[in-house]
Design a binder for these strands. Structure first.
Lengths: 136, 136
DNA sequence: AGTTAATTCTACTAAATTAGTATAGTTTTA
DNA sequence: TAAAACTATACTAATTTAGTAGAATTAACT
C-alpha cells in the first residue's frame, strides 16, 4: 500500500497541474482543497521542491509551482522520490538493489522471480504515465 | 515493499512444492534451510494452514504439507492472505475496497486512476502465476 | 526607509501504527 | 516420553503521520 505521503504528493502535483496559470499556490490552499494536514503537506512539497519537481517563492504572494510541463513529469520518478523503490523486494530493484541476507541463491528464488515480473510491469506503467496523463 | 512475512511465506511454500513427496516437513527444517527465525515462520505457516493452503500433522513425525497441487495454488490468493490488498490504494482495491476520507470525488482522483492501472496489471500477473510456475 | 504581515523553511518532538522477534507454555501423537 | 504443532502474550525497533516553535524571506503599506 502507498503511504499517505505518496498519495498526498501525487494529489498536490495534480492540483498544481490543473491550474490554468503557473503562479505560486500556497500550501494552505492545496491542503484545504485536498483535506491534507497542512504541516504534513508542507514537508511533502519541500521534498518535491528539493527533488526538482517544484519551485517555491517565499514571502507574501509566495507558494509552490510546477517547474516543468506536466507532460514531462514521469510518474515513475515521482513514485521513487515519494515512496521509494518500485520493486516489491530489494533484490528485484534496479535503482535500490540490495541482496537478501536470507537468500542463498538468487537465481532459484521463486519470490524474486515473481516480484521481478511484477516490477517490470509496474515500472512500464509508471514510466508511460506523465503527470499530464493522469491529471487530465 | 513486501513484508518479510510475505517473502518468507512464499519461500516456505516453494520449499514444500519442491519436495518430491508430500510428507510433513517440520518448521525447523524449513527455517534452517531458508534462514528464517523459527518462531516467526511458525506463525506464518499457521496462517497458511488456517487459510487452506497447508495441512498440519502434530506430534512426532509431524509437520506441514501442501494440501493442493502447486499448479492449483494461485499466487494472487497467497499474496492476499500474506500481504493483504494487491491494490496500492484502498480505493483501487476490489477485495478490500475503502473510500478515502480525504477524497471528494473518486472519478477525478489522479492517484486512484494511476493506481488502478497498476493494480489491474499486478493482479493479472499474480493470477496467471501458480506456485508451480514460480517454483520450477 | 522602516514596519508589518504573509509565506516558505528548518529543527525538534510525539503519537500511532506496524514489523519483527522472543518467551513460556499447552496439546497432540508416534 | 519425546517430538512436534499450537496458543498467547509481551517486548523492541522502525516507520509513518502529525504537531510545535521559530527563523528567514519577501511584498505591501505607511
Amino acid at each position: 500500500m502507498l503511504s499517505k505521503k505518496t498519495k498526498y504528493g501525487i494529489k498536490a502535483l495534480t492540483y498544481l497541474a490543473r491550474r490554468e496559470n503557473n503562479e505560486p499556490v500556497q500550501i494552505a490552499e492545496i491542503a484545504k482543497s485536498e483535506h491534507i494536514s497542512i504541516k504534513f503537506l508542507e514537508s511533502i512539497l519541500l521534498l518535491l521542491r528539493n527533488s526538482g519537481f517544484l519551485g517555491a517563492k517565499k514571502g507574501k504572494g509566495g507558494g509552490y509551482y510546477l517547474i516543468k510541463e506536466p507532460k514531462d513529469i514521469s510518474m515513475a520518478k515521482v513514485y521513487r522520490i515519494l515512496e521509494g523503490p518500485i520493486a516489491l523486494l530489494p533484490c528485484a530493484s534496479h535503482n535500490f538493489y540490495e541482496k537478501c541476507d536470507d537468500c542463498d541463491d538468487e537465481a532459484t528464488c521463486a519470490a524474486r522471480r515473481l516480484m521481478t515480473e511484477v516490477r517490470d510491469n509496474t515500472l512500464k506503467i509508471l514510466e508511460s504515465n506523465s503527470l499530464a496523463d493522469i491529471a487530465f
